[in-house]
Computed example of a mutant assay.
Amino acid sequence: MNEQGRKEQYSDEIDLYELLLVLKKRFKIIVAISFIGFLIGGLVAFLSPNIYQARAVLWVDSLIDPSLIERFKTIDNRTSFIIPLGQTKSPEVNNLSLSILNSLAFKKKVLDRLIKQYGEKEDILNLTKSINKGKGDVVFKAEIDKKTGSINLISEQRDKKFAENILSYAIDEFEKEIDNTSQIYSKAISPKKENIKNSKNFVLSVIEQPTSLESPVKPKRKLIITVAGISALFLAIFLAFVAEWWINVRARRKN
């Protein structure tokens, strides 16, 4: 048993040595393929356009007494409502705000505003195609800040000003949606029609106006080059062993 174990160990050592010999024999090919991988990664990284991120922060306050809200919910569960996070712990509040901001119909309204200002330029046509495919996040996305409960709007575009304008129009349209919701509440709560027209049950506060970061957020050039180089290195090593195996197979066949 001990002798057999030594033979197996010796065999393993020889196999490892042979692997190192293969790497040494194919060293130039491995280096060449790895270099090509780095080169391709560099070309992709530096030829990709810069993408800038614009951000805005919103907050919605409710001027309606919570008891009236609960009563209204029992009257008509089909009606949409927006309640700020600070006045309730119910997740449906923020979910509804996000459903409005992230809906395709809402983003189409924002695009209509953009078309009026910029015309049918390439960037807008690309955004329209994305929305038609159900990819609304390419226009902008809304998410809730878990720490503060505020609504963060984020848009990533090739042009800083274009990204900021997208968020500005989104805020304008969102304020209109809030006003419409106020009208719906007033009709259900107020018995006097004259109080409905100018009612303001919800208030939108823009905590941070749309601003863009100075540096692009994409592409991550260092990461792209590193991943491309490492992937090419592993591919080169794999191909080196495959080539060596194929040469050995052909040699055996000739013999």
Rank of each mutant, 00 (worst) to 15 (best):
P84L: 03
V110T: 04
L98F: 01
L114R: 07
I115S: 09
V110L: 04
K107R: 07
I124Y: 00
S130G: 06
F46E: 04
P66E: 09
A54E: 05
Q53R: 14
E120D: 14
K89C: 00
D145I: 03
P84N: 05
K116L: 15
R113P: 05
G86K: 14
V139P: 01
I75V: 14
K121D: 15
I51G: 10
I51N: 12
K141L: 03
L111Y: 04
G134F: 02
S99N: 06
N94G: 11
L104Y: 10
Q53I: 09
A56P: 06
P91W: 02
L47Y: 09
D145E: 01
S99L: 05
R78S: 10
Y118F: 14
L101A: 03
L98W: 00
E70R: 14
R71F: 10
N77I: 15
N77R: 15
N102Q: 04
Q87K: 09
I131M: 05
V139M: 04
G134L: 02
R55P: 07
L96G: 06
S67V: 09
F72Q: 12
L58M: 07
V93D: 08
L47I: 07
I64M: 13
V139I: 04
L101S: 02
L98R: 00
A54S: 14
T128Y: 07
I124H: 00
I69R: 08
E120Q: 12
P91I: 02
L47Q: 07
G119Q: 01
K129H: 03
R113H: 08
F106S: 07
K121M: 15
V93F: 06
V57I: 07
Q117A: 10
L68Q: 07
I144M: 05
T79R: 13
V60R: 08
Q117S: 10
V110M: 03
D112V: 09
I100E: 05
R55K: 13
D65G: 13
N126H: 06
P49R: 09
L98M: 05
F81H: 11
R113W: 05
F81Q: 06
D145M: 00
P84C: 03
N77T: 15
